[in-house]
């Protein structure tokens, strides 16, 4: 199987879907001539022309709304946010327009749109450029939220997101764009709403998504050497969440750690823990623990940033704690 980067996988997904359906277009800052701030749209302008690869002004609220309006009139926009930090300026169009249109029109106007871009922290970008918005977005009924961690998942999920007739948020990762993985030559889709077991084990579950799936796999590989076998459940789609996959895993392992990139308070992990306590209470041998970012804006200083982020060491410590091994 060819090995390509996460960036190339997304690029392939966009190219294939634009070739397949001429209602699909991409709009955002620097997506055309510049080839994308992170080069995800490289070559698309050349291939599809400026009608379908549209460089917008720096006006997130405006072009997100243009995307929604065009979707109501039958197009299938892919709106690229240079990063999700900037998408906060457009959150009104995501929450009040895209997510509400079908419901408040009594089922008449669906909004087939993809909002995508890098989410979460990279390295030393400081407080305003290092935020993970999974829980903000997953809170909203009326949209789907996916968060791929590998090139394979990125391509399959983005293709499904573009074909979905609902608004779909795709949370990518700046630190993921250069990571590599196997992606088949043939066409494939990954269904939205289905988790993927990234490692199989019977001792403890780690429930996670996105960039943190890579951390969880590292943790599983390291702990395997200590004869601790982790079941890694990569949610892939955060809304709607594949709760059955969580239940199945936790009923088997009877212990769980929930790992996420964002902040603790009202985070994705809080929701997962709630599902577990309601449905797997009798199976649990230890309280479920959470690993997440420190409850502070992201600092710039290298050392501080490192200790603010969830990582392999913190996750291993949490796993050992739920296994009562120290």
């Amino acid at each position: 199987m060819p090995i390509i980067t996460y960036r190339e996988a997304l690029n392939q997904a966009l190219r294939e879907e634009m070739a397949r359906d001429d209602r699909v277009y991409i709009m955002g800052e620097e997506v055309g001539v510049y080839n994308g701030a992170y080069k995800v749209t490289k070559g698309l302008l050349e291939e599809f022309g400026e009608n379908r690869v549209v460089d917008s002004p720096i006006a997130e609220l405006g072009f997100a709304g243009i995307g929604v309006g065009s979707a109501m009139a039958g197009l299938r926009p892919v709106i690229e946010f240079m990063t999700w930090n900037f998408a906060l300026l457009a959150i009104d169009q995501v929450v009040n327009s895209a997510a509400k249109m079908l419901y408040m029109s009594g089922g008449q106007f669906n909004v087939p749109i993809v909002f995508r871009g890098p989410n979460g922290a990279a390295l030393q970008l400081g407080a305003q450029h290092s935020q993970a918005f999974e829980s903000w977005l997953a809170h909203i009924p009326g949209i789907k939220v996916v968060s791929p961690g590998t090139p394979y998942d990125a391509k399959g999920l983005l293709k499904s997101a573009i074909r979905d007739d609902n608004p779909v948020v795709v949370l990518e990762g700046e630190m993921l764009y250069n990571t590599k993985g196997e992606v088949p030559d043939h066409e494939y889709l990954i269904p939205l709403g289905k988790a993927d077991r990234k490692r199989t084990g019977t001792d403890c579950s780690i429930i996670t998504s996105g960039k943190m799936a890579l951390v969880a796999m590292q943790v599983a590989d390291l702990l395997a050497k200590e004869d601790i076998h982790i079941d890694v459940i990569d949610l892939l789609t955060i809304r709607p969440m594949d709760v059955e996959a969580i239940y199945e895993s936790v009923r088997k392992t009877q212990r769980a750690v929930v790992l996420e990139e964002g902040w603790e308070v009202c985070g994705i992990g809080a929701q997962v823990v709630d599902y577990i306590q309601r449905e797997c209470f009798d199976h649990l041998d230890a309280p479920v623990l959470r690993v997440h970012q420190a409850d502070v804006p992201m600092p710039y200083a290298k050392g501080l940033e490192k200790i603010a982020k969830p990582d392999v060491a913190k996750t291993i410590a949490a796993v050992k704690q739920v296994m009562y091994r120290t």
Partner: peptide, 9 residues
Amino acid sequence: PLAAGVGFA
């Protein structure tokens, strides 16, 4: 902006 989007379409 939605109106501009319909115009775009």
